[in-house]
Design a protein around this nucleic acid. Structure first.
Lengths: 217, 217
DNA sequence: ATTTATATAGTCCAAATGGACTATATAAGC
DNA sequence: GCTTATATAGTCCATTTGGACTATATAAAT
């Protein structure tokens, strides 16, 4: 049984959704709310398997609720429903961790299928939105996957490279890592040699391009 | 009529595909080849609307052909077919410009629908592969979309920021843009002020994070 | 046991950087 | 006509950076 929370500020639409889903043998709507805030408020208590969130709701909306919902309930899957084709919402939702993004003109079958797939760990995108996402993906600067070079860097060097992307000077780096700025300089030199770069500026750009950006310290 | 080129090194599979597609009222297989190289060779001459490419073929394979095909025929859409769930191939294909990625266990209906959608500018992803893609997307460092701040930068400032990500010094920047290094410095100062950054290092990282990376000069 | 890699710390020195200024020409907006 | 933004170019000066070195302690590899 897939336990679903539905969030939509249009009562009629929400009730219609609930009836459709409840009529499915393997889906159960266990909560029905009219805002992102309400979804967050009830998430901890009822632990749904899937959140079905409308994008446009008063307050934080569906997109604004995603991160919190995932913190509260990391294994839950999130499916967005929307009328608009805003790229902004799409990207934010996907980056926040949504696993599905459908327009409200989807058929009943598509919606039910999407919920089942998302529950199974797959992802479902409306083909129009998928196109926007792929365009964005294709426009990405470079790899962002681990590269051979990256593995040649020691953890210390990676640390320094990471902090470098936040603009720290050698002195600041030294303070941050509790080592002498001279040592920082030595590490930096090794980094430049290993990656064949000419300056800390290029090194910072390289680091960002290769996804070496854990949360700022 | 959607004009399709099919590339697959398994004769039986390719012929089966061709029959299925030709039986559709709006689809016409205008070429059928057994390698990525052959697809590239015929692309210019026959100008298909959609390329249906197998991923695993001897030689450059389907993925390796994408970039060349798109150079020859930029408005053509590319749909990949594969048996494997290799993330490597998926990412490369999408980054190269593929607009669809289906596993070979897809149904006839799904394939036909995918071709139609892709031809219409939409994108179609197998839900399993879509999940991998979304995970990757969610792991991206940051925005990469134009931000309000970016629009405040003048074209000159954006130029400089862009070159900065390749590690150029003020002197080099000046030479590249045929202006005095002092002027470069002035622009740089304005950039730092506008974006509220402290150094060119931070500026370079900012630029990469926000996708300010047109092809290196 | 010896080599190699890593992390540490330093010196000397030329070049680059960034901040605080000044200044001019041009184009756009009001 | 006046103001503002942009692009240009400069000075002075303290700080930072990067290159070329040296040096030590520790841990892992052979």
């Amino acid at each position: 049984m897939i336990r679903v929370l539905v969030a939509d500020d249009h009562n009629l639409f929400r009730d219609g959704l609930t009836r459709i889903l409840d009529s499915q043998p393997d889906i159960e709507v266990i909560a029905s709310v009219d805002s992102g805030e309400a979804a967050v408020a009830r998430a901890a208590e009822i632990q749904p398997d899937v959140f079905l969130l409308d994008v446009n709701m008063p307050g934080i909306g569906g997109v604004g609720a995603i991160r919190e919902l995932r913190e509260i309930n990391p294994q839950a899957r999130i499916l967005m429903l929307t009328v608009s084709e805003s790229e902004e919402d799409l990207f934010t939702a996907v980056r926040s961790g949504a696993r599905g993004y459908l327009l409200k003109d989807a058929s009943t079958n598509q919606l039910v299928d999407a919920i089942q797939r998302i529950h199974a760990g797959e992802a479902v995108l409306n083909p129009l939105m998928a196109a926007k996402l792929l365009d964005q993906f294709a426009a990405l600067p470079k790899a962002l996957q681990p590269t051979p070079e990256m593995e040649e860097l020691t953890t210390r060097e990676q640390q320094i490279l990471h902090l470098l992307t936040h603009g720290l000077s050698n002195k600041e780096l030294g303070k941050e890592l509790a080592i002498s700025p001279y040592t920082v300089k030595a590490h930096l030199r090794h980094i430049l040699e290993k990656l064949n770069l000419r300056s800390r500026v290029e090194a910072a750009a390289w680091a960002v391009r290769h996804g070496l950006t854990k949360p700022p310290v």
